[in-house]
């Protein structure tokens, strides 16, 4: 079954996972993956399927950094803020990316293209500093190399 609507995507995620022990996180992951966020109007569908209250499902969605209640940009840039990257100039990378995109963490550029997020350790500490752009991890980055990567994202859209 291919989901054509948000409703279908949510029902598909529920259907495929509700038999699991502790099914809520797998369901939320699937919806987040397929739709890029968990639509608030469908929280009730999840709650009913798992015999939970809407408050319980909402509580879980808002507890975890992975689950978003609003859609994000087409691309997501994650900059590592943790200690190993700090020791290798991570704070300067953070500042440079913010300045270049003219947004702060957890914001999206006006054109809806790029969302910037902080991340606390990507497990790439031996190749710090690290950033992740969509599903691709980059190590030993510099202000220049990150700037180039952002430019290539922007070039893609035109």
């Amino acid at each position: 079954m291919i989901a054509n609507t948000k409703q279908q995507a949510v029902l598909l995620a529920i259907d495929e996972n509700k038999h699991l022990e502790g099914a809520l996180l797998p369901i939320l992951h699937r919806i987040q993956h397929d739709l890029g966020h968990i639509p608030s109007e469908h929280v009730i569908d999840i709650a009913e399927a798992l015999n939970l209250s809407r408050a319980e499902v909402h509580g879980v969605i808002t507890f975890y950094h992975s689950f978003k209640t609003e859609p994000r940009g087409k691309h997501v840039i994650e900059v590592c803020r943790a200690e190993s990257c700090q020791a290798k100039g991570g704070r300067a990378i953070e500042a440079a990316v913010k300045a270049k995109l003219e947004i702060d963490f957890d914001q999206t550029t006006d054109d809806g293209e790029i969302t910037l997020e902080p991340v606390y350790c990507l497990g790439n500490c031996a190749c710090s500093p690290a950033v992740k752009i969509d599903s691709q991890l980059y190590g030993r980055v510099t202000e220049e190399s990150v700037s180039d990567l952002i430019d290539s994202l922007k070039a893609e859209q035109h």
Binding site: G22, L24, P26, H29, Y64, H65
Partner: peptide, 26 residues
């Protein structure tokens, strides 16, 4: 394999168990 959802505290064993049960990682 079950995936976490970006929560440092879920590395604490009881929070991890809560998370595996589908709850907030408290």
């Amino acid at each position: 394999v079950r995936l976490g959802a970006k929560s440092y505290i879920c590395g604490e064993e009881t929070a991890l168990l809560e998370s595996l049960e589908g709850k907030r990682g408290e």
